[in-house]
Design a binder for these strands. Structure first.
Lengths: 231, 231
DNA sequence: TAGATTGTTAATCGATTAACAATC
DNA sequence: TAGATTGTTAATCGATTAACAATC
């Protein structure tokens, strides 16, 4: 069950464009806000009924509770052309966002820490559809080492660095306890990891050039509690 | 960022300061961005060595990679007073943010869908420390019903509405499969749930006045893939 | 044509950063 | 006092929304 790195999502056949690089018109620095909105469009549109061919910006806007001008600007950014009085082609939106974000472009990852959250992430169905390939699981618990989760055998963290040097995944998903997160993160970077997706509720100190995305789950509770306060 | 569906229009903006004076400069509402930053300060500071009593804004700023002016503004918003040449009292920061956000203020929650992700959330240690109490688990899988996860017995979703009407939690954590998310969310609202923390990768359509926070995990992959593209 | 939608510029709104006197 | 930091105003920067001609 070896995966080729150029994985296709499950949305059916499509024309692959030969160029992987963005055109000159596309700005190099796209903000966090825009990237999240684009990904949000992508994930939701990929689950639409494939028979729906045309989608208008007011329709998308109401789905995502953003302004329809916003939607048109976002789509213009990734190079989708619409048709007045009709909208945008669903397939073209998906293709353009996929290419713009680089989804499915050599997205091999290891998961470090296979507790409850880690094993939920291994099994997360959307990941594979989006082109993220889990190639290795690591944990330090002797009871877990050697067992399999979703078809992947858990290896000891002692073998993490050599595995990464050999297999060369670029992404590490960190779902380990806080007290080992910093040291493991540093080892991952030493072994050549370029991006850390951090699900440990801690702030990592890492050299510049390593991309870190924090997914601190409890952050959301602040907003929820705030909105439940009496007005 | 920010797919966050914040359907809070029915309550209008919340007044910040209870003092009678209405300064023009005081913000009428607190944004998503600010709430997340405050919660971030809170979670990280709560894990500091309690012997550290004073913390300066440049120090906090470097921890969180924000500007130190930003930190001072945020702290001023929640009412923390600093001391020139010294900084802010750690305990006072925590107290003020906790009160401002309403953490620990009647935050009972049910979890709907006890798969891998749901059971990871039940066991999440930070939740209890932040004042979130899980009071019930629901699932529709006959093999799960009646079994216990982290000390909570899983009940059938058929009993969800009556349980919520009796026990009156205000929060529901939705970690169920996409195809049942919308219908379960609607039932939750009918039973009196005020806020839905949605971990299902789908957009919920719900009446105004219900606060929805989406925690679509795969959104982060877009940003990671983008930053891994060749420059 | 009539109506809806795109594409884009201008206006507005909010968030971030710079600057600096006041304070300890 | 000297140096560091707070508190706050002004300036800048970026994101969102309004407006509307062009298009199908």
């Amino acid at each position: 069950m070896k995966q080729k790195t150029t994985s296709r999502t499950s949305n059916g056949p499509r024309k692959l464009h030969s160029t992987g690089s963005r055109s000159r018109k596309m700005p190099r620095h796209v903000t966090h806000t825009v990237l999240e909105r684009l990904m949000h469009y992508y994930v939701c549109l990929s689950k639409y009924d494939p028979n729906i061919e045309w989608i208008s910006s007011p329709h998308l806007a109401s789905q995502f509770r953003v302004d329809d001008t916003q939607v048109r600007k976002d789509l213009a950014l990734v190079g989708v052309k619409g048709r007045p009085n009709t909208g945008f082609r669903r397939e073209q939106i998906l293709d353009s966002i996929r290419r713009f974000l680089g989804l499915g472009r050599n997205l091999d990852a290891v998961i470090v820490g296979v507790g409850r959250l880690g094993s939920a992430l291994v099994a997360y169905r959307d990941f594979r559809e989006l082109g993220l390939n889990i190639v290795g699981l690591f944990d330090n618990d002797p009871r877990k080492i050697g067992t399999a989760v979703s078809g992947h055998t858990i290896l000891p963290t002692a073998r993490m660095k050599s595995f990464i040097r050999r297999r060369k995944p670029r992404i590490a998903i960190l779902a380990c306890p806080v007290f080992v997160a910093q040291i493991l993160a540093y080892e991952l970077v030493e072994a050549g990891i370029c991006a850390i997706w951090n699900f440990s509720p801690t702030t990592l100190q890492l050299p510049d050039g390593v991309f870190v995305r924090n997914e601190h789950i409890s952050i959301g509770l602040g907003e929820i509690a705030y909105h439940l306060l009496p007005s």
